[in-house]
Amino acid sequence: MALSKTSQQLDRLGMTASTLCAVHCALVPIFLTTLPLLGLEFLSNEWVEISMIIISVFLGVLSLSMSYRKQHHKLLPFFILFTGFALIGIGHFSGIESLEPILIPLGGFTVAAAHLVNWRLNKVCTHTAKH
């Protein structure tokens, strides 16, 4: 039961981090001119975005791996997670600026969806690895 609680906490943290990342990526371009006035210009720094992506990757892989091995043995959350990070990667690194404000938030919400699917699979799964 301890693994399930830890995994659920990681999924909640992952959903929160991914959603915040998506909101950040959607709103920063809109408020870019006002960030310096508010003392928040660091939010538009590329390293902040890359750090958020790295944290989300770490949380996602850790949480989903724990659940996969000990709980539900389903690959769907991984597929959704990697689809989300592919969208983020294409949006962030493709160099096509018109895609960035669409793909990155979509990718962030997709990563959050992977955690949600994982969390729901854990809640439905009432057995341990010895099923």
Rank of each mutant, 00 (worst) to 15 (best):
M1D: 08
A2Y: 07
A2I: 15
S4Y: 10
S4L: 14
K5E: 12
T6R: 07
L10Y: 03
L10S: 01
L10R: 01
L10G: 01
D11H: 14
R12E: 06
R12Y: 14
G14E: 04
G14Q: 07
M15Y: 04
M15C: 04
M15Q: 07
T16F: 15
A17P: 01
S18G: 15
L20G: 06
C21G: 09
C21F: 13
V23I: 15
C25F: 09
C25P: 01
C25T: 01
L27F: 12
L27S: 06
V28G: 06
V28H: 03
P29A: 14
T33S: 10
T33P: 00
L35E: 05
P36E: 03
L37Q: 05
L37I: 07
L38V: 13
G39Q: 06
L40R: 03
L43Y: 04
L43S: 02
S44I: 12
N45W: 13
N45E: 08
E46M: 10
V48T: 09
E49T: 13
S51W: 06
S51H: 02
M52D: 02
M52N: 03
I53F: 08
I54F: 11
I55A: 12
V57I: 15
F58L: 14
L59R: 01
G60N: 09
G60T: 09
L62S: 11
S63W: 04
L64Q: 12
S65G: 11
M66Q: 03
M66D: 00
M66L: 15
K70V: 11
K70T: 11
H72K: 11
H72Q: 08
H73I: 05
K74T: 13
L75M: 14
L75I: 14
L76Q: 09
L76G: 00
P77D: 08
F79K: 13
I80K: 02
I80T: 12
L81D: 01
L81S: 04
T83F: 07
G84C: 11
G84H: 07
G84N: 09
G84L: 12
G84V: 10
A86I: 15
L87I: 13
L87W: 02
I90G: 00
G91F: 09
G91N: 01
H92V: 14
H92N: 03
F93Q: 02
F93C: 04
F93A: 10
G95N: 06
G95Q: 00
I96S: 01
E97A: 14
E97Y: 10
L99V: 08
L99C: 06
P101I: 15
I102Q: 06
P105G: 13
P105M: 15
L106Q: 00
L106A: 15
G107V: 07
G107R: 00
F109V: 11
F109S: 06
T110Q: 04
T110R: 03
V111H: 01
A112T: 01
A113N: 03
A113G: 03
A114C: 05
H115L: 11
H115I: 14
L116K: 04
L116S: 05
L116G: 08
V117W: 04
V117R: 02
V117N: 00
N118F: 05
R120S: 10
R120F: 13
L121P: 02
C125Y: 04
C125A: 11
C125M: 09
T126M: 07
T126Q: 07
K130Y: 07
K130L: 09
K130N: 08
H131F: 13
H131N: 12
